[in-house]
Computed example of a mutant assay.
Amino acid sequence: MNSDRRERPGPRVTVIGAGPLGSSLAFRLARSGARVTVVERDRPGCSPESETFAWVNAFSKSPRSFHDLHVEALRALERLNSEVGGGWLHVGGSLHWGDGATGNEFEAFETAVETMRAWGARIVEPSLGELARIEPDLDPESLGGRRPVHIPRGAHVFARQMAGAVLRAGVRDHGVRYRRATADGVETAGGRVTGVRLSGGDVVEADVVMVAAGAASAALTASAGAELRTVSRQPGAFLVTAPSAAELRTVVMAPRVSMRSDGGGRVMIGSSALSHLRGDQVGPDLVAETLDAARAHVPALRGVGVEAIRGGVRTVPEDGRPIVGPDPAVAGLYHVATHNAVTLGPVLAEMVADDLRGLPVAALEPYRPRRFTAPPRDT
């Protein structure tokens, strides 16, 4: 669809934030007819929320509705990638013989696998020959006799490239306006939003304001007299190796480490020990320990050092689930908050675009903001 925004009047929507979530919202909303302005204080995708392992998966996601949302998330990412291009989505699935991200014991891992099978996921137990074809850089001896599983439907994302490509496509093809400025607050009058106040004093007028600003979202929401029920900003650090001969095709989830390609022979490495640290809290001993664990599985990393330590921030809703929908008290304020914005951003953007047009979106019902204010149901 390549129609001029001026020929199709729609609601004036201001999206605060141009990370993977905000850029996806802007693209889908403008494509569906809204007049969209994006306000971002930095370049697209350069916030701490975009520094992430960005593994797209439905592994260990429950209940069933949350699992299904993640299954649909990959389809939405594929749709978005086909529309905007840019080489930021890499579909190769994942290999598991333990959960390197959380340190779960193998029994819990097996339970998660069986649950996914029961819910219809395709899970393959490759032979050693098949394993060599799926992931040539992996040393099968490092599995310690455990039989790995391959989940073909999975991917990883280069989050910064994604945010930039999606926003550029929105500007180029669907009339999105991009304002590089700091949003100081949400303006209201008579119980509804009227616009977004910028640090220089300008106001971007709006009928609807969507705050997708990560850690800044709670304060911006509060400026409108509303509350965003997030409880924490969780840090998470990752190592990125120097260029090597390793070219991982899958996301590798080993018992102590998780690994994926970061492009150009680089490998991004996470671990349970790194998962709650800021980048500046990662010392040389932990770097060496993490590298040793990765090299045990991927021999091509032996002798290869660390090029960067990246630290991201995850803003986590109070109950760990996305918050999506109109604010119960402030008209025109629409919440879109989730801690896994790279994975869920595109699928939530599709649903939000339909929701804003008044179409029924049953999949959003468990995530409405009113769940925090509704009286408890009798059980």
Results as ranks from 00 to 15, higher is better:
S3P: 01
D4C: 00
R12K: 14
G17E: 12
G22P: 07
G22R: 07
F27C: 11
A30M: 09
T37R: 09
T37S: 14
E40S: 05
R41V: 08
T52E: 08
V56Y: 10
S60P: 02
K61V: 13
S62C: 10
L74Y: 12
G86M: 04
N104Y: 08
G120W: 01
G120L: 06
S127V: 06
R160C: 10
M162E: 14
L167A: 08
G175H: 06
A181N: 00
T182H: 09
A189D: 15
R197A: 15
L198W: 09
A213T: 12
Q234G: 01
A237S: 13
T241G: 05
P243F: 03
R249V: 10
T250A: 07
R256A: 11
R256N: 12
S261K: 04
G264Y: 05
S271Q: 07
S275K: 01
S275M: 02
V282G: 06
V282S: 09
L286T: 05
L291W: 06
R302Q: 15
V306M: 03
I309Q: 06
R310V: 14
D319G: 09
D319P: 03
G320K: 14
V336Y: 07
D354T: 02
D355W: 01
L359N: 04
Y367E: 08
R371L: 06
T373Q: 09
A374C: 08
